[in-house]
């Protein structure tokens, strides 16, 4: 293999600032999408454990829909199809009025997609709590809302920290799909450097290192959080 190595290129302008801004966009997409995913997923996940059949059915339909369509297809649906099928004004706003439409489309798409995964973890966490706790809480006269608020949700979130961590890392990695609709995130930038300079190994290696470092840092951080918040006597879902 004859390859002209030039690691110095990474420190030159504009390549250094490309990588830096790409990393920033990756983090921005991932964090905003995670906020949507966590809130939406919690609601849907709780709905799937309620006694009433209607919210359960809605929750199941949501999860099945968003889990069984590839993320890239969903992204194209949000970006190309949704503005067309919405009423004219709303569609025009999405196409013309909204600043950075690619960015917000990617955030919403990833948020809804990951929401389905979070919902499954929340449901599994609530179902992992022995039914005696729910019954005991109800027998003490708590309303169903109070049972969830004070008993089921606080306990279940502690035991699903490991799977939720891997879902967050999923969002972080999946944010690279945003490059298909034109968000200049980390992977897109490293690809761009490869195209401009042919220094593909250096460019991709930088992205690789950044992704791995964030992954291992988040894993270490969440492992610590899990240890601190663990309730004695309960096992985490991962250990099961």
């Amino acid at each position: 293999m004859n390859y002209r190595w030039d690691w110095g290129i990474l420190l030159k302008d504009p390549y250094f600032s490309w990588i830096a801004s790409g990393f920033g966009w990756t983090c921005a997409v991932a964090i905003l999408a995670w906020i949507i995913a966590l809130s939406l997923g919690s609601v849907i996940g709780v709905m799937r454990t309620l006694p009433h059949p209607v919210p359960r059915a809605i929750g199941t339909a949501y999860v099945e829909l968003f889990r069984n369509i590839p993320l890239l297809v969903q992204l194209f649906l949000w970006y190309f199809v949704v503005p067309e099928v919405l009423p004219r004004e709303a569609g025009m706003f999405l196409k013309r009025g909204l600043p950075m439409p690619e960015f917000w489309t990617a955030v919403v798409c990833l948020g809804f997609y990951t929401g389905a995964r979070v919902a499954e973890q929340v449901r599994a966490g609530i179902n992992a709590i022995r039914s005696g706790q729910r019954q005991a809480a109800l027998a003490m006269g708590l309303t169903l809302t109070q049972v969830y608020r004070y008993v089921l949700v606080p306990v279940s979130y502690r035991i699903i920290i490991p799977p939720l961590t891997s879902d967050f890392l999923g969002v972080f990695k999946n944010s690279s799909l945003a490059l298909t609709i034109g968000v200049a995130e980390l992977t897109a930038r490293s690809r761009q450097i490869e195209e401009y300079t042919f220094q593909g190994i250096e460019a991709f290696a930088t992205a690789t290192v950044l992704y791995s470092v964030v992954t291992f840092a988040v894993m270490a951080l969440m492992h610590m959080t899990e240890k601190r918040t663990r309730i004695p006597g309960l096992i985490s879902l991962e250990a099961k």
Partner: peptide, 10 residues
């Protein structure tokens, strides 16, 4: 720890 797209590019 890597996104699939990056691996494909690699």
């Amino acid at each position: 720890s890597l996104p699939l797209i990056l691996v494909i590019f690699w």
